[in-house]
Amino acid sequence: MGFKLLSKLLVYLTASIMAIASPLAFSVDSSGEYPTVSEIPVGEVRLYQIADGVWSHIATQSFDGAVYPSNGLIVRDGDELLLIDTAWGAKNTAALLAEIEKQIGLPVTRAVSTHFHDDRVGGVDVLRAAGVATYASPSTRRLAEVEGNEIPTHSLEGLSSSGDAVRFGPVELFYPGAAHSTDNLIVYVPSASVLYGGCAIYELSRTSAGNVADADLAEWPTSIERIQQHYPEAQFVIPGHGLPGGLDLLKHTTNVVKAHTNRSVVE
């Protein structure tokens, strides 16, 4: 069995187990497998329904001669939608809004960016022009300005110390501490036991640490421990890039980060 097929099978099995364990909360999309990078042309966006009122959005972007996937989250909030992270750029984010209108038909009224990198804030200006209120932590807003990236308009308070959590509509926002970046936030959907790890969490097929220019490698494993301790009931975990899975993604990420750190020390 090929690795790609095995990865998709694991996603399907995880979703099936969740649907059985929580039949009222989960209505997993039966329309197909989780979209992969090879299936999404740059400039297009796919939506994948995880649970009743919960979707991931998947886009792709060219970077350094390669094409990478990027995940975000959409959560229903009454007759409105909360968006977590842009679709990595203005063109993708405009396509995301169009796809949401086509498939869901509810307005996106608020959006949260989970850290300051372009795959999370690139497209904020498109959201703002569409009347979406954009939010991020003060740290993310400051770092985005320093980096020359787009800056969300509103500040999220109460997320300055490791372990801080605040309720934001249908989700809980959690600051686990520094990891992929010093400002990275985690998003949890309690009604569906869905954990969105953003770039602080890796997919299972990833074996290298990737972009760690703004990471705190020493603190990252401790931050992941905080996530595990705060959300032990999480059933569906979405990484910032690639295929979702279960809580095993947290341990896998820790292993990859520690291996990278150990290699760096040896070198």
Rank of each mutant, 00 (worst) to 15 (best):
K102N: 14
T109N: 13
E219F: 15
F3S: 13
P176R: 00
L6Q: 03
M18A: 03
I224S: 05
L83M: 13
Y48H: 03
E150N: 08
L250V: 11
R128V: 09
I201D: 00
L156G: 01
A215N: 13
R226W: 08
L217Y: 15
N255W: 14
V187Q: 00
E99S: 15
N211E: 10
G245D: 05
L5H: 15
P176E: 00
S181A: 07
S16W: 04
V187H: 00
I40Y: 03
P232T: 06
S160P: 13
I100P: 01
L47Q: 06
V189R: 01
G148N: 03
V11E: 11
P152Y: 13
L243F: 12
A51L: 13
A51R: 06
A111E: 14
S191K: 06
A144P: 09
G123F: 00
D216K: 12
V194P: 00
S70H: 10
E80S: 10
G158I: 14
T140A: 10
L97G: 04
S137D: 04
V171T: 09
L106M: 07
S31A: 13
Y175C: 02
S27R: 13
I58Q: 07
L97I: 02
G177I: 01
P138R: 11
K251Y: 05
S27E: 08
G177C: 00
E145L: 08
D125N: 08
Y48Q: 06
A129F: 02
V42A: 10
A213M: 13
H241V: 01
G169W: 06
E147S: 10
E233F: 12
Y48D: 08
E157Q: 08
P107V: 08
S264F: 11
D64F: 03
S22I: 15
G245L: 05
V126E: 07
V54A: 07
T253G: 01
S22Y: 15
S139D: 12
S205E: 13
E157N: 15
E44R: 10
D216A: 09
T207S: 06
A215F: 05
A213N: 03
T93M: 13
L82V: 09
S38A: 11
D119S: 01
S31G: 10
R120P: 01
G242N: 03
G242R: 01
G245H: 15
E157A: 10
R142L: 14
P170T: 08
V124L: 11
P107M: 11
Q235K: 03
E44V: 06
A90V: 07
K91T: 05
L24R: 10
L243W: 09
A98P: 06
L6D: 13
A130W: 12
F168S: 09
A136L: 06
G89E: 12
L96P: 01
L5K: 10
L83I: 10
S181T: 07
L97Q: 02
H117N: 00
S62Q: 13
I151P: 02
Y68V: 08
I227H: 01
A133D: 13
F174Y: 14
S27K: 06
L250H: 09
R120W: 01
S223C: 12
E33S: 11
V257S: 06
D248A: 04
A178M: 10
L185H: 03
P176D: 00
S16L: 09
S16Y: 15
P107Q: 04
R141H: 03
P23N: 12
V121Q: 15
A259D: 09
S264G: 14
A66C: 13
A95L: 06
E150G: 10
